[in-house]
């Protein structure tokens, strides 16, 4: 057995201890910190979570105290109405929250029904990019089965000699990576290379920036961020949820 095999087995044993719950205190905290940085460890934890849940009976039920929901509701309301949030972006998102769901639904219907008389595409990821006033500027949907991104633009005035650029901010490493440059806001549908689709799937959010013609020369977004929106999965992907992790 090679050293790396041994390491993986040890790592798997730790993942198992973490999921079973015997790992406690500082050991648990250290493991959780390592987990954030280690994809193979995450896969091992996911494997054990998916397997060991079969130890419990998902039909077992114990009704919670009636006040439990009230407590949850209050916490959610507090989080939504908080005015002392740390990030400008979070505040920005907060402003958009009340209209966000409506914006998604309305945008989807508005975008797809008139142009494509049939059903809404089998979209999987959606991001409603809103400006600092909470107004939606762009709705982006991906249809990964056909490697397509659908776009619904609101009224955006592009500064002369400037382009717009769409970026994905990775959920995994926080890096911002380019998806597409737009000279006009008339693109309703575009082919999305697999690499870009992967960026969207892995994205915590998408942002739209103003850049020089041709897009950012530095491959980094400018400070002129027009809109931002969380990237949300709408429907499950096919061929998913394999019960056994492929990584051992």
């Amino acid at each position: 057995m090679s050293r790396s095999d041994t390491e993986l087995l040890t790592q798997d044993g730790m993942a198992f201890e973490y999921v079973t719950g015997v790992m406690r205190g500082t050991e648990r905290k250290s493991f959780e910190a390592a987990l954030q940085q280690n994809a193979s460890l995450q896969a091992q934890v996911q494997f054990w979570e998916e397997q060991l849940i079969n130890l419990s009976d998902t039909a077992s039920a114990r009704n919670p105290h009636p006040k439990t929901w009230t407590g949850i509701e209050q916490r959610i309301q507090q989080s939504l109405s908080s005015t002392t949030l740390p990030s400008r972006w979070v505040t920005w998102m907060g402003l958009g929250v009340p209209s966000l769901l409506t914006a998604v639904l309305v945008s989807c219907l508005f975008l797809f029904l008139p142009q494509h008389k049939q059903a809404i595409p089998n979209s999987d990821y959606v991001a409603v990019l809103i400006n600092i006033k909470g107004e939606p500027l762009l709705t982006a949907l991906t249809e990964s089965s056909n490697n397509v991104m659908w776009l619904k633009w609101e009224k955006i005035t592009i500064t002369p000699n400037k382009n717009l650029q769409l970026w994905a901010i990775s959920k995994r490493d926080g890096q911002t990576r380019p998806i597409k440059v737009f000279a006009q806001t008339d693109t309703g549908q575009m082919a999305l290379p697999k690499a870009s689709l992967h960026l969207v799937k892995e994205a915590a959010s998408l942002i739209l920036t103003e850049e020089d013609i041709g897009g950012s020369a530095l491959d980094e977004p400018s400070d002129i961020v027009l809109a931002k929106g969380a990237c949300v999965l709408l429907t499950p992907e096919s061929a998913t949820n394999t019960p056994v992790s492929k990584t051992i």
Binding site: Q46, E50, I53, A204, V232, E237, T240, N241
Partner: peptide, 13 residues
């Protein structure tokens, strides 16, 4: 919720 990925875990899990 936004960070949940169904291809990585079943929702109940």
């Amino acid at each position: 919720a936004a960070s949940y990925r169904p291809h990585l875990a079943k929702p109940l899990t």
